Simulated assay, not measured.
Amino acid sequence: MKTSCHARIVSIATALGALAVLAACGTAPQKMAMYSQDALPAAIKVPAGNRVAMETVGVGEITYECREKAAAAGAPAAPGQMEWAFVGPKAVLNDRSGKQVGTYYGPPATWEASDGSKITATQLAVAPSGAGNLPYQLVKANPASGPGVMKDVTYIQRVALKGGVAPAMECNAASKGKREIVRYQADYIFWKAA
């Protein structure tokens, strides 16, 4: 009798242990897929000889101001014409698990890691990313300020865009100087030399 009771307890404990292992396997984090540039426009692809060093999701806002339209290169100024002008971004940079790893702000556009290292960059190319979204962007990083994860970053791509374009509301002489904040989200992919 003692042996059969003991055998049942062991059998139940084994079954419960197996259930716990199966439950844990079902909720175990999945390995992330490797980042691919294949579907991106050629203009914003990072050149060969670089590898992805960090992937972040920027969530924040962009400020626009109603201003007199700037003269286009080689064209005369157009007094009295107004437009929504980009003022600057302000966003939190999260890793793929949602943990904050830095911030993005400007001007000038600055990516700052939680470890204090930061970089600015020079725009190389943009490409359309869909109606209502900021364009894709490729920038060449300037030398980093401070040691940390931003050290040796060569390029930054802005991809997976949602929102961020200038407000649809009218910008005219009566609203000159008015500022509007637009929400946006974008992935910022940081590259280093391979």
Rank of each mutant, 00 (worst) to 15 (best):
D38H: 11
I44M: 12
Q30H: 10
A173W: 03
P167H: 01
S129P: 11
T56M: 01
A73I: 08
A15I: 07
Q185S: 14
C66P: 03
T122N: 11
A75I: 05
Y35T: 06
M169R: 06
A125Y: 10
A141W: 09
G74P: 01
V59L: 08
A71R: 11
P76Y: 00
D115W: 03
A23E: 05
T122H: 04
K2Y: 08
G163E: 01
T110G: 04
A193T: 14
D187N: 07
E65A: 15
G132Y: 02
D38F: 06
P147L: 14
A13D: 10
T27M: 10
R67L: 10
Q157M: 05
P29A: 04
R96F: 12
A77C: 13
L19D: 07
H6G: 05
L138Q: 13
K176P: 00
A160S: 14
D95L: 07
E55T: 13
V149H: 00
Y105G: 02
A39W: 00
L124C: 08
S175E: 05
C25Q: 13
D38M: 09
S97C: 05
K45H: 12
Q123Y: 09
T110S: 05
K2D: 09
M169S: 12
A70S: 12
P41A: 00
G146M: 11
A186Q: 01
N142V: 09
L134Y: 03
G17D: 11
S117H: 11
I119D: 03
K140G: 07
